[in-house]
């Protein structure tokens, strides 16, 4: 490559890739620098670790990290666990399979906030679910289901919204396995469990990792589901960050923001690694 060619490539990359790197780079840089007391918007900038020390000491911070991890990991696991069998079922087309696929993927079209509204509308104190449970006589009176303390509502919403996405990715991967390869495994004596463990799982592991990681990153940084349907006595990391920012405590918000990025990165790496470790065909040989 000549320098002229390089110049051409760099010029071409500048408006797209260049902007991405500039914006995301600046945002991450500001977050990190602000978390160490610099880049003060209102007062004097001072390099110090006191914001880290201060925020890390608070109980709310530890609880938020644990809570976000809880939501992130469980949402990713539930979505993938639900999507896997469905993807296998829909591998071969059959009468009605297109309709089934379309219905399953419908939540992709529904905005998360709309989903949240629909959900709380159904589980409301005088909502249909409560009415129904009383009508069949299982519950004596209406129960308070919204903002439950175990965040089951948030988990249901996350799974509802993310399962179709996992299904989309996994269907593609599962359909990529040729019939002959599965037939060969059968022919060599592999039953359905062995076929899944030794052929399907190892061949779809990268798709599964991608689904796990993307859903995890989205769910670990959840804000709106948590605010609308989550437990009122807990805060997610994003919520905590917005809370600090609204109070003008930019440095504290930055500490939470950087932590959130670290949690997202480390968490996805761990999830991807665990998936490979558990599902890799080679370990079972």
């Amino acid at each position: 490559m000549t320098w002229r060619r390089w110049l051409q490539v760099i010029l071409l990359l500048t408006p797209g890739l260049g902007l991405i790197v500039a914006l995301i780079g600046t945002v991450v840089y500001i977050a990190i620098v602000q978390s160490f007391g610099l880049y003060n918007l209102t007062g004097e900038s001072l390099l110090s670790a006191e914001h880290w020390a201060g925020v890390l000491e608070r109980r709310a911070y530890g609880r938020a990290v644990r809570y976000s991890l809880y939501i992130g990991i469980l949402s990713a696991l539930f979505s993938v666990a639900l999507a896997y069998p469905l993807a296998l079922w829909l591998r071969k087309p059959f009468t009605g399979s297109v309709a089934v696929g379309a219905i399953l993927k419908a939540p992709l079209l529904v905005h998360g906030l709309v989903a949240a509204f629909l959900f709380i509308n159904v589980i409301a104190y005088h909502g249909v679910l409560n009415q129904f449970m009383q009508w069949i006589g299982l519950w004596e009176g209406p129960r308070r289901l919204q903002n439950d303390s175990n965040a089951i509502g948030v988990l249901i919403l996350q799974t509802w919204k993310n399962m179709p996405f996992a299904l989309l990715i996994l269907t593609g991967a599962v359909q990529g396995i040729s019939d002959d390869v599965l037939d060969a495994a059968r022919d060599l004596g592999a039953g359905s469990m062995a076929r899944f463990r030794k052929v399907i799982a190892p061949l779809t592991i990268s798709a599964m990792q991608a689904a796990l990681v993307i859903i995890f990153i989205g769910a670990v940084a959840d804000f709106s589901f948590q605010v609308i349907a989550g437990p009122t006595n807990r805060q997610s990391m994003a919520q905590l960050m917005v809370f600090y920012k609204d109070g003008g405590r930019w440095h504290d918000a930055a500490v939470v923001g950087v932590s959130l990025m670290v949690v997202a990165l480390v968490g996805s790496a761990l999830l991807a690694f665990a998936a490979r470790f558990i599902l890799s065909g080679r370990r079972f040989r």
Partner: peptide
């Protein structure tokens, strides 16, 4: 079912397991 039938098939597409080495392919059955 084929998995318990005493036949072995040589496929037109070969149908080798792409994630397994030659040794693992041979040992699979």
């Amino acid at each position: 079912p084929p998995e318990t039938r005493d036949t072995a098939m040589c496929f037109q597409s070969y149908a080798l397991f792409p994630h397994l080495s030659v040794r693992e392919n041979l040992e699979f059955g």
